[in-house]
Design a protein around this nucleic acid. Structure first.
Lengths: 198, 198, 198, 198
DNA sequence: GATGAATGAGGCTTCATTCAT
DNA sequence: AATGAATGAAGCCTCATTCAT
């Protein structure tokens, strides 16, 4: 049972290697262009090994996404100014999200692909019906609405007004349609704030 | 050249039938779930026939997108209040876009899939480098910036602030995550205006 | 529609070629040793072609068996002495069956494999519950029982007493455990008659 | 050599556990559906362990069959009425065989699968050329022929007339095509006797 | 001796594309 | 010009076997 931390590390290492490989290849080539064999090669494991860690290719894709989602949430929560004003919290979250994606374009591309696939749609629908939301952001919006600082619009719309543009500018930057810099990011997040605030 | 309008019509008819079939099936099942044979069946033509109108499956996909893009632009331009205020023109365009997609969810789903594929990215990049933009919307933004009505942000950002949320709410509606109605749409477009206006 | 008999023949030819190849290879190597690729090669068609005629490998196997079963029945019915005594009819059927299998050992081996596989078991059970039996033999047994010429045993047991040994001697001959000749076959069928007759 | 009986027992125990697991799983699912890993799990040993007791999967299968064959013979010989008439000895053997299989359908299914596989055929041929037959039954037949009680047919045919139907009715019972009871079994074995006796 | 993670050849199936009719 | 049967490369997954621990 107690196999020593080394073995455990080695196990996790292999799993992570696979996830990383899947992330990279799917980000670059889409689900189309990401055969299991290619993922295995990139991860330096045999094809069969992937199936020790994931039941199927679908399972691998979902597993990879899960991993990213956790990271994203962690990133947004880091240094989150819980005690400051709604506006400051909003700007922090927006900024962080953009920062997270710009720092790792591959993750962005993967997430985008995922959201636009049967996987993503099924998952989102599941989330909504089970009321599993990512808490702090929701809290912020609801608090803001109560204090009449934020427009009285459905949560879903507020999300769209906030994340729609931010995702969009990340995409433009990452695909090199337009190059972002700090001031522009700040001004864009502020513009999003203008959209949601009263 | 003119071999009689009937033949020409028949040709176009067949082509359109194919495009329509591709649109439907790709929208419903994604690129994955849209084999050429299935498209051919839906279009009531033989597989080989598709290859008389399109060089390859990729070509068919791009051709289908071209067709939609033209329609979208037409829709936005219909009853465009060219002589009214920037704000009114903005609201019109936003409203129209949402209306267009809600009226034909399949087209929305196709367009989304397309944008998130190698096709879409390549195409977008090509557009930008060739400065082929869709005119009236650009004009509106530029005029607004000059008149200091719209924020002095790059065009690309203004686009993101406008279309990002609108696309997002369409998606939510179409995948039945959240049901839109006229007042909500209006208020959302206005919120987008708040984001871009000074 | 009327494509001419030649095209139709050609279609059937290809299907039959595939069935023949499946028969041969499965007979020789068992279901294990009969990959689709090998069957395709033997039939001189591409792998994909097989899937135009059969939905899956299972379907091919069942289809091949169906084909053989029809042949077997035809063989038994040829020159069947419908108006002669029960005994003569019994001896005819037994003889014919053995003759059929000895003439084409491969068919025997295929049939044996089939009966001893999930396919065969499922099929047999289905037959029984749907009361689809191969008529003339059943008729003969029932007539014999009524006339008190044949033992009053369930049909299923009479079948076993008749076909059990015959199949067994075919197997022995075909696998070259023991070489049959006409007199021995005759005497064995007669011995089977001794088993079922009163 | 004698490292203590405990270790030896433990060794044999493990081997038997593996054989038992192989028997069960192959009987239930066929050779197809019996991966080594599954057998290992059922036997509560590691995959690698199996390879300490058997050179290969094939070897395991053959080993399992050997084990069963010994059991079968033992079963037939139990209470064998060596001093009674040929007929009584025949009926005893037949009855016993059916009893053995009905008592453990899994063993029957395994044996059937085995006989219908390359393993079984090779083995049978080997047996015959080496004249390794299962003694008492042979003895009985030969004695019967000499005393002109049993038909003067080759041993191989007598075997077929006896075991062919019995195996067949076991199969029907086990696959639930037809339910046997004691009287029917008795009458069937007697019918087999009618087939072989003069 | 025992373990079970890792391997990778090989199986089944799909589907874009071609070409004889 | 239209048809659709044929092709075969390529995808996903399984599983007998090995070997470091």
């Amino acid at each position: 049972m107690a196999t020593g931390s080394q073995l455990i590390m080695s196990k996790n290492d292999k799993r992570e290697e696979i996830v990383q490989a899947a992330l990279e290849i799917i980000a670059e080539n889409g689900f189309h262009g990401a055969p299991i064999v290619m993922i295995a090669e990139r991860a330096s494991v045999a094809v069969g090994t992937i199936y020790r860690y994931f039941e199927s290719k679908d399972d691998l894709v979902v597993g990879t996404y899960d991993c990213l989602e956790r990271q994203m949430l962690t990133s947004i929560m880091t240094h989150y100014p819980e005690l400051r004003s709604i506006r400051e919290r909003f700007l922090h979250a927006g900024h962080r999200l953009v920062g997270y994606f710009l720092a790792s374009p591959m993750k962005f591309r993967f997430v985008e692909q995922f959201h636009n696939s049967p996987y993503g749609v099924a998952r989102h629908r599941d989330r909504i019906s089970n009321k599993k939301g990512n808490n702090i952001v929701i809290e912020m919006f609801e608090e803001g609405r109560q204090q009449q600082i934020i427009k009285d619009l459905p949560l879903s719309i507020l999300y769209a007004l906030t994340f729609g543009p931010l995702i969009e500018i990340c995409r433009n930057h990452i695909f090199q349609f337009y190059e972002l810099d700090e001031p522009i990011i700040t001004r864009t997040v502020e513009a999003c704030w203008d959209a949601v605030r009263r």
